[in-house]
């Protein structure tokens, strides 16, 4: 248990309009997001290590992709898809302040 590790458990949606050059910004899914025609990507980190990624589906309904997540270091998260539904990826947590979670911009934006 690492006291410095920000808690990321929960369901988060991408507030792409708040992204900066270096960070991708997420809020909890019940945050009052601005309407967006492109459905927002999302990530749901469960406490038991399971993970669900939401990607825009062909009927505009986010499609769920199930995987697992694990903390590598204090700020490094590894996401894998054991059932082969996607390539593994890494996330770097920049900060968690209240209802704002920021990752370093990467392949998942």
């Amino acid at each position: 248990m690492n006291e410095e590790a920000p808690d990321i458990v929960g369901a988060w949606l991408h507030a792409y309009e708040e992204d900066t050059d270096t960070t991708a910004v997420y809020h909890p899914e019940d945050y009052p997001f601005r309407p967006s025609r492109r459905p927002r990507r999302g990530m749901d980190f469960h406490a038991d290590g399971t993970f669900v990624e939401w990607v825009p589906g062909p009927d505009d309904r986010p499609r769920e992709v199930a995987g697992r997540w694990a903390r590598q270091e204090t700020d490094r998260i590894r996401v894998t898809f054991p059932e082969g539904q996607g390539e593994p990826f890494d996330l770097t947590v920049v900060s968690r302040e209240g209802d704002t979670l920021s990752f370093a911009r990467g392949e998942r934006q």
């Binding site: 019940d30 967006s36 459905p39 999302g42 062909p58 309904r61 986010p62």
Partner: peptide, 11 residues
């Protein structure tokens, strides 16, 4: 709808 979603359909 949550998450700023405008709508969705079913094929």
């Amino acid at each position: 709808l949550r998450g700023g979603l405008l709508g969705y359909a079913q094929f």
